[in-house]
Every structure is written in C-alpha cells, then in structure tokens.
C-alpha cells in the first residue's frame, strides 16, 4: 500500500511571479530635475528614448519587454502625485516612450506591511576577506558593506603609542590591483534609520528581477492606476501599472538607461547585489522557467543587471 502524510506547516510555498524577458528603466531624475519643469524632464527622456529602442531590438521583436520609472519620494518629497505623475507620463510620451510601471522609491524601503529593506538586509552574506574561516562572526561595520578588507582606521594608534602603519584596503577578488568599494547602507541621524540611495536601488533591482519574497509571496504587486491620482505620495501604491497592456513588471534581466552621473551609485548597487543571497527556491523557480523558454539565464545576479550610461 502507498500512503502519504504531509503537514502544511512543514511545507514551503513560494509563489512565482509573471516574468518579462527584460525590464527597462527609463532614466532616473533627482528632485532638482523635477523642479526644473516639464521641458527639462522631456529633454531627459529624449536622451533615453533611442537607447530604449536599442535594448528592445537587441532582445528581438517577440520578446516581452516592460518599462518602468522610479520616482524618488524617499529622500525628499516634492509636489504631489496628481501633479508630478501626469507631467512625467506626458514628457515621456512626447518622446515616444511609454511608462508601463511607475514605482515609488519609498516602496523599496517599506511596501505596505512588508519591511522590504530589512528583508534584503537579512539576506546579505558579506564577501569574506582571505583568512575568514568561520571561527569569528563575520567582520561587519554596522551600516557599511565593502568588497574587501578595509585599511586601518585613520588616526589609529597601535600598542606602545607607535602610530599604526598604513595598510591599503584590498579588494577580495582583485585582478592584480584593487578597486576597493565601501558602501554606506544606512545612517541613523535622529535615531531613525535612513537607507542609502544605492541600498534602495539594489532593492529596486531585486524587485525588477522578481527575486524578493515575503513569507513566500512577492513583496510588491502592480496595482492598476486609479482614475484619479492621490495628492500625497504615501497613498500612491508602491508600484502602479500605468499601461493596462503592459508585459509583466519583473523580468529575467534588467536594463537601466541612466545618465553617467549615476555610475558611482550603480557600482555601489553591484557591490551590494554581489552579496545578496536570494532564496534558492526562488532562484530555482526562475531558472526553471528560463529553461522552459529556452533562455540563457546568468547564474550570478549581477550578470542579469545591465546598463546604458549616457
């Protein structure tokens, strides 16, 4: 006789999300850009537009492509959604771009009940410096993440009063010479934690790659845009679907068309992403789907993230 016995509390249920082939980010603006008004924003989108076409054509005409735009409402809030969002949509539209999904940066810190930033923080496995053998807890400097071994503290003194000898910081995976990167993940100026821009941008990449789950459920789901937009940012859903015919928000890989001024931020993003261990079940799921579609999917997360810097 064959018998089966299972317990629900013993099972892990990980929901899968719909996936496009590629998710294209249509640039990014700082607060001062919005302050400069419609003309300036349209000029920014005009720079982005031809490269979006290049990315589209590089993946083939039949590929599922979705576009997205991230509005920074975390570090400073300006205007109101009912004023800013239509302006952004119109500026993009005049350059031939359609924004399928609009996201709020604050949603990368917290989305509804989900502490998304914390979720990712708990999945960081710090890049170990040579000599790390597990005997001691990982060397972490609270709020910072680096890709190697830091140099000694400035102004540090060794025993007997001798001034500490300077040692250069070293990158763990250096190709002969180091490019040492040390990223601030957060600070707490008034006791409340403020996540850094690169940290939230890393969360943003993970969302676009469809790799984040909270208790097995996707952390954000696109909400169709309401007929009228709210007047305050908090009321706007973390992820709004502006185009009803859009392909899925998350994708096997991401492409971001960004001004070159974001290059340092994205280097920091890659430093963080290189140290995030995504739920193996989710990775497995996505890899299985890619295989089913006969797609080549990079094993390493950072290799699923690409850029066009303007």
């Amino acid at each position: 006789m064959r018998s089966a016995f299972t317990e629900e509390t013993a099972e892990r249920r990980v929901e899968s999300t719909p996936l496009s082939h590629v998710s294209i980010e249509l640039g990014h603006l700082y607060m001062e850009d919005y302050a400069k008004g419609f003309e300036h924003i349209r000029a920014q989108f005009r720079l982005v537009a031809p490269w979006v076409e290049t990315v589209r054509s590089s993946v083939g005409g039949k590929a599922r492509v979705s576009t997205c735009f991230l509005i920074d409402d975390y570090f400073s809030q300006f205007g109101s959604p009912d004023a800013v969002v239509p302006m952004v949509i119109a500026a993009a539209g005049e350059t031939g771009l359609t924004i399928d999904y609009l996201a709020r940066e604050a949603g990368c810190a917290r989305s509804g009940e989900v502490d998304v930033a914390r979720l990712v923080l708990d999945r960081i496995v710090a890049d170990p410096a040579p000599g790390t053998n597990g005997a001691r807890p990982p060397l972490v400097k609270s709020g910072w993440l680096c890709n190697g071994r830091r140099g000694p503290e400035a102004g540090g003194f060794e025993a007997m009063g001798a001034e500490a000898q300077w040692h250069p910081p070293v990158q763990n995976a250096a190709r002969r010479h180091s490019i040492f990167v040390d990223v601030e993940l957060w600070d707490e100026p008034d006791g409340a934690r403020v996540w850094s821009c690169p940290y939230l941008a890393s969360v943003w990449q993970l969302m676009r790659l469809g790799l984040l789950r909270d208790h097995g459920k996707p952390v954000v789901r696109p909400v169709p845009a309401a007929e009228t937009l709210p007047s305050d940012w908090e009321t706007l859903p973390s992820l709004v679907q502006l185009n009803p015919k859009a392909q899925p928000f998350s994708a096997y890989r991401t492409a971001s068309v960004l001004p070159s001024r974001f290059l340092p931020v994205e280097l920091a993003v890659r430093t963080i992403l290189s140290q995030v261990a995504v739920d193996p079940e989710v990775l497995h799921q996505v890899a299985g789907r890619a295989h089913g579609e006969r797609l080549q999917l990079a094993d390493e997360l950072v290799d699923r993230v690409s850029y066009v810097f303007l």
């Binding site: 496995v125 890049d127 040579p130 890709n147 763990n172 995976a173 992403l273 290189s274 140290q275 995030v276 261990a277 193996p280 094993d299 390493e300 997360l301 950072v302 290799d303």
Partner: peptide, 12 residues
Amino acid sequence: QRLPWSHYLAAP
C-alpha cells in the same frame, strides 16, 4: 584565483 563574490553566492 578568487572570483567575484557573486560567483560563490550563485551556488550556496
């Protein structure tokens, strides 16, 4: 030689 850390996290 040691590879970028993302390589090792791809095979936990």
